[in-house]
């Protein structure tokens, strides 16, 4: 297996995230630490996007808690392959709860981007979508190209979930586009935007 194949994948992560978030509507977004958080910020910082600066392995579970608390809202988790690999057990937990309003999108560049582009297990063929399917999530798949992405975006926003889509993106080192860093601010602005001013603590 060519472990550097993601250097030439056609889909570019910033374009993918911009295309997904262009149709976010009323969706609530959890952005996994590192590049996915920068990608979501590059597409436009938003009070109903909660970008993570840590909590590696926890993005999908934050999405689950939010999806159960807000069953009428679509919840998108946009994270990376390294982050998802650290929380694989959460796929089983999510499958048991099975919230229809949750979609997990992994931007899979087969690298740990923030630490020097070291290979993740997906570079060696570990198939995250197959793991999610094995856990029992009803809609899973791997996206490799633009045509696949367009079909995936419809599922991300509308299909009864939990949806799990692994999007193969090019390994590339992009300019940082950083969201606010203060966790209390990020939490409060999210809750105020969702629940109203009285939700500030």
């Amino acid at each position: 297996m060519d472990v550097t194949r993601s250097d030439t994948y056609p889909l570019r992560r910033r374009d993918v995230v911009e295309a997904i978030l262009a149709g976010r509507g009323e969706a609530l977004v959890i952005a996994g630490l590192g590049a996915p958080a920068w990608d979501c910020t590059a597409a436009g910082d938003h009070p109903l996007t909660f970008p993570l600066w840590g909590a590696m392995g926890g993005a999908a579970m934050i999405g689950l808690g939010l999806a159960l608390a807000q069953p009428s809202r679509r919840v998108l988790v946009i994270t990376g392959d390294g982050e998802m690999l650290m929380g694989l057990g959460s796929l089983a937990t999510i499958a048991v709860q099975a919230p229809e309003n949750l979609a997990i999108v992994v931007l899979d560049n087969e690298r740990y981007g923030e630490t020097g582009m070291q290979l993740t297990h997906t570079a060696h063929g570990i198939d995250l979508a197959a793991l999610a399917a094995a856990a029992g999530l009803p809609i899973t798949g791997t996206v490799h190209d633009q045509a696949g992405l367009e079909a995936a975006i419809a599922d991300i926003h509308g299909a009864p979930g939990p949806v799990f889509l692994n999007i193969k993106v090019r390994a590339e080192d992009l300019p940082l586009v950083l969201p606010p860093k203060d966790g209390v601010h990020l939490k409060d602005r999210f809750r105020i935007a969702l629940l109203g001013e009285e939700a500030a603590v």
Binding site: G57, I62, L64, L66, Q70, G87, R191
Partner: peptide, 11 residues
């Protein structure tokens, strides 16, 4: 992480 998400959602 789960309870952080629940709190973001008001629970």
């Amino acid at each position: 992480a789960f309870l952080a998400g629940a709190w973001l959602g008001g629970q």
